[in-house]
Simulated assay, not measured.
Amino acid sequence: MRAPIGTFDDARPAADRLDLLPAPVAAAVRDLDDPDSPERFLHVDTEPEIADTAVFVERHGLELLEQSANCVVVAAKRGGVTTLAACVVLSGARVDVNGAVRRQLGARKVSFAAMETATGETGMEHGGITPVGLPADWPLLVDSAVVDTPWVLIGSGRRRGKLIVPGKAFAALPGAIVLAGLGADPA
């Protein structure tokens, strides 16, 4: 199957690749992916060594830089209570943690979650965290630019492989809140 973006040798419906996905991502794909839709979630099998965005787009197409998104886990603190949330922005942007995220979560302080916390709470690997399959009670902040992108390349929950998802599907994920300006230009 030919992927709608990038140059991949092996793109298949993600529902056919559940064995390559961590349990929470596989469960979400089973629940969310519509086998009758032409806009199915796709999985592209790739080497873990090239999972980082810069190396990945060099190998599979520079246009992917504008069609890739990153998912980061943040810890929001207020009054001694810590809330975990996830943020999704296009790869060329950075998450506006101290502005948009802090305001949306009503937090006094927001920081990127420790790697052990992010991987332990999601059941996913560092460098592969995806919004598909996150804990349902987490806020999921999605930059509107991601939703407006026809097809988006994002982690698969593992460093091996990526998902290609219709941008509009991010707005339908559990806990999703679409925000304009969540992703700021890198300074």
Rank of each mutant, 00 (worst) to 15 (best):
N98H: 07
A136W: 12
E116C: 11
R59T: 08
A51S: 05
D34M: 02
A15S: 04
P166F: 15
T122F: 13
L62I: 12
H43R: 12
C71A: 11
D137Q: 03
G167P: 12
A69C: 05
N98L: 06
V165H: 00
E39L: 04
R103D: 14
G80K: 10
K77S: 14
A76E: 11
A14I: 06
M124N: 11
I177A: 09
R12H: 14
E125S: 08
L21V: 08
L20A: 15
E116V: 12
A11I: 07
A176R: 01
R159S: 13
E116L: 10
P38A: 14
V152Q: 01
T149F: 02
G6N: 06
K168G: 02
W138V: 01
G128C: 03
R59V: 08
M124Q: 08
A51K: 01
F41I: 00
P174D: 14
A85G: 03
M124I: 06
R2P: 02
V81P: 06
L21C: 09
V146I: 06
S68E: 00
L105C: 04
Q67A: 09
S111Y: 00
R103A: 15
D31C: 10
R17M: 15
A184Y: 00
R12Q: 15
A23D: 15
G167V: 02
V95R: 00
L42K: 14
E116S: 15
T119L: 10
A107H: 05
A176L: 10
S156K: 01
P150A: 06
V88R: 00
I164G: 05
V132L: 08
D34F: 09
D137F: 02
R158E: 08
L21F: 12
H126E: 11
E63A: 08
T7Y: 10
D143M: 04
D9F: 12
R30P: 09
L141F: 04
V73R: 00
L21N: 09
E66N: 15
D31T: 14
V29Y: 02
A11H: 09
L140V: 03
A26C: 12
T130F: 07
A15F: 06
N98M: 11
V74H: 01
L42T: 08
I164T: 13
D52N: 11
G79R: 12
T82W: 14
Q104G: 06
A136L: 09
R12S: 09
L32Q: 07
D36T: 13
P150S: 13
G161P: 14
G181T: 02
Q67N: 12
K109S: 06
V146F: 03
I129F: 03
A51N: 04
A113C: 07
R108N: 04
A169P: 01
E39P: 01
V110D: 01
R17V: 15
P131Y: 03
L84V: 01
I154A: 04
T53I: 13
R30H: 03
L42A: 13
G181M: 14
G6S: 12
G175N: 10
L140E: 07
A184Q: 05
A184P: 00
T46A: 09
V132A: 03
W138K: 02
A26W: 04
Q104S: 13
D34V: 07
A14N: 02
G61C: 04
R17D: 10
H43N: 12
P174S: 14
V29F: 10
P139S: 08
L163I: 15
D45P: 11
T122Q: 11
A54D: 15
